[in-house]
Design a protein around this nucleic acid. Structure first.
Length: 181
DNA sequence: GTTGAGCGTT
């Protein structure tokens, strides 16, 4: 039985080819520079984005790499997938999302506080002035508001010293293993 | 070297 039941699990399993690659399983210490170093071997990049935790400011272990040309992106996907980078086997796939979320756009954009109840449930829409809002940016936007159930109990008592003079001096500049295929 | 899983609101 193949995955023929549709749904977005399908999209996650088989994302369409795109110049935007998602890179997952990264080490916390892999920087955009490192990624640039690796992925630029397959072609010119349009950008690299490591996703950082909003509170801690550290990497969340995944990133997005934008290529300028689709064929380079394809090659990078093929070759860099499974590659070891900073001690981690990274996974590279076409991204299913293209951009970060829109920050506070001024329109509602939240989940409906109640659905089902009434008829004509459009009430909460709030009459946004623009209808044609970026339709294709919305892929997978629902369901990710779960990230709010993070561990907020970190900041209980001790406040972490802002002077974490932790020198990350270690020359980990090229700790990935360059492979020749 | 705090880590998973993991698709983004610096």
């Amino acid at each position: 039985e193949a995955y023929s039941h549709g749904g977005d699990a399908d999209v996650r399993a088989n994302p369409d080819p795109s110049t935007c690659l998602g890179v997952f399983g990264l080490s916390l210490y892999t920087t955009e520079r490192d990624l640039r170093e690796v992925f630029s071997r397959y072609g010119p990049l349009a950008g690299v984005n490591v996703v950082y935790d909003q509170r801690t400011g550290r990497s969340r272990g995944f990133a997005f790499v934008y290529f300028e040309r689709l064929e380079d992106s394809k090659e990078a996907m093929e070759r860099a997938n499974g590659m070891e980078l900073d001690g981690r086997r990274i996974r590279v796939d076409y991204s299913i999302t293209k951009r970060p979320h829109t920050p506070t756009p001024g329109i509602y954009m939240g989940r409906p506080t109640h659905n089902g109840g009434g008829s004509g449930g459009g009430g909460g829409g709030g009459g946004s002035s623009r209808r044609g809002r970026d339709s294709y940016y919305d892929r997978g936007y629902d369901r990710y508001d779960r990230y709010e159930e993070y561990d907020y109990r970190y900041s209980r008592r001790r406040s972490p010293s802002p002077y974490y003079s932790r020198y990350r001096s270690r020359s980990r500049s090229r700790s990935y293993s360059p492979r020749r295929y």
